[in-house]
Design a protein around this nucleic acid. Sequence first.
DNA 1: TAGATTGTTAATCGATTAACAATC
DNA 2: TAGATTGTTAATCGATTAACAATC
Lengths: 205, 205
Amino acid sequence: MKKLPRKIITRVLLYIRTLESLIKEKRFLVSSKQLSEITGLSDVKIRKDISNFKKIGKPRIGYKTLDLKRTLENYLIQGNTVRVVLFGAGNLGSAILRYPGFRKGNVRLVAAFDALRRKTGKKVGGVHIYPVERSPEIIRRCRADIGIIAVPKEHAQEVADFMVLSGLHRIINFAPCPISVPAKVQVRNIDFTIEFLSLFCDTQK
Amino acid sequence: MKKLPRKIITRVLLYIRTLESLIKEKRFLVSSKQLSEITGLSDVKIRKDISNFKKIGKPRIGYKTLDLKRTLENYLIQGNTVRVVLFGAGNLGSAILRYPGFRKGNVRLVAAFDALRRKTGKKVGGVHIYPVERSPEIIRRCRADIGIIAVPKEHAQEVADFMVLSGLHRIINFAPCPISVPAKVQVRNIDFTIEFLSLFCDTQK
DNA sequence: TAGATTGTTAATCGATTAACAATC
DNA sequence: TAGATTGTTAATCGATTAACAATC
C-alpha cells in the first residue's frame, strides 16, 4: 500500500476514534454522511480518504463500523509502531504519561526519564521512570524512534544532546526555546501559543 | 489588511520567535536565505509570506530584524488579543499555566478554574486559580474568548456545559473523549496521539 | 558595474470539491 | 424499480515553487 500524506493520516486517526465511539454505542453501520456530521469533514472527502484502502463500503448501506475500523488500523499498524520516550516527568511530562492513547495503538510511550531521584523508580500511566543516565542503554534496548523533551528550558539543550547521543533521530521539543542538533536529527518545536492561536484562525471545513 | 489563512499565520508566529532569538544574539539584519536555514522553510515561501505585509526588505541587504518583528507583531495584535481561560489545574493545566508564551503577546491566559479547594486561591504562572463556580462571573468580566478543558475525562462534559453557560463560544478539549455542545460553539479536540503521529508523517519542507 | 537579494508574476503541484456512473 | 449511497473521474481551488525583473 502506498504511503499516504500526513493530512490524510491525521484524518484516518480521527475516523478510527470516531468509529470506536460508534462501536461503543453498538452502531455497526455508518454512512459517509453520518461520519461527516460527527467529524465536521465533508462526506466526499471522507469517501475519498476511505477509498485509499479498498472497496469496503456498500452503496445504499454504508460502511460496517467494525470492518472499517479494522482496515484503517491495519494500514497504520503495518506502518510499524512508533516507540516514544519521554524526558522530564514534571507537570507536562506526567500529563503525557497519563494520556490513554499512548498505551495501545501504534504510538507507544515506552519509557520516561527524569533527573530527580524522587521521581525515578516509579510508574506513571503504566510507564517506568528511569534515571536519566540510563537513557542510552534503555533507548537502544527498546529501539525508540522519537524522544519528547518536557524538561525546564534550562535543561533542554543538555537533554537534546543526550538524546542524540542515545541514538534518537527525531525530537519533539516542548521546552519554549530552540535547541541545536546535528542535521540528521529532525526536530519539531511545539510552541503552545502558536498551536493555540492557529487552532481558530481558519474556518475551513 | 486582509485576513491571512491559518497556514501563513502559523508561519508568521514562527518568524517572530526566530527573530526574537536573532535579536537576542544582537543580529540586526537577516536574509530570507538565513531564515530559511533556521526555520527549515524555503526562502521563497518566506519572502512570499513577508510580502503580505509591506515592502520591508532591502535587496542585497535583507530584512532588519527589529523592523520585521514589529511589522509582523503589529499585524497579529491588530487582530485583537485572544483571551483564554483554563478549566482544570492538574498536571496538564499547570503545564499550560506555566507556559511563558501566554504571558505576553496576543494570546493571554487570563484565568483558571478548579473544583478542588486546595488548588484555588493560588496563582500558578502568574494566573489566578478560582473555584469553578465563579467561572460565569469571571469569564463575563474578562471577556474571554476561548476555554481550555484540561480536566479528567469524567468531568469533561460537565465542564463543557458550564463553559457554554458562561458564554464561551470556542473550546479546546484536551480530555480524551468527545463532548457535545450546541452548534454555535466551536470545539477543537486535541488528541495527543493524533498530533504526535502526524508530526512526523510527512517530509514536506 | 556586477552580484546578491527582494518582491512579483507565471507555472506547477496537490488537495478539495463537483459531477456522475456503478451498485445495492 | 426507484432511491440512496459508494467510488471515481474531471474540474476547481489554493498553496508552493520556479523564473525573473527590480533594486540596492
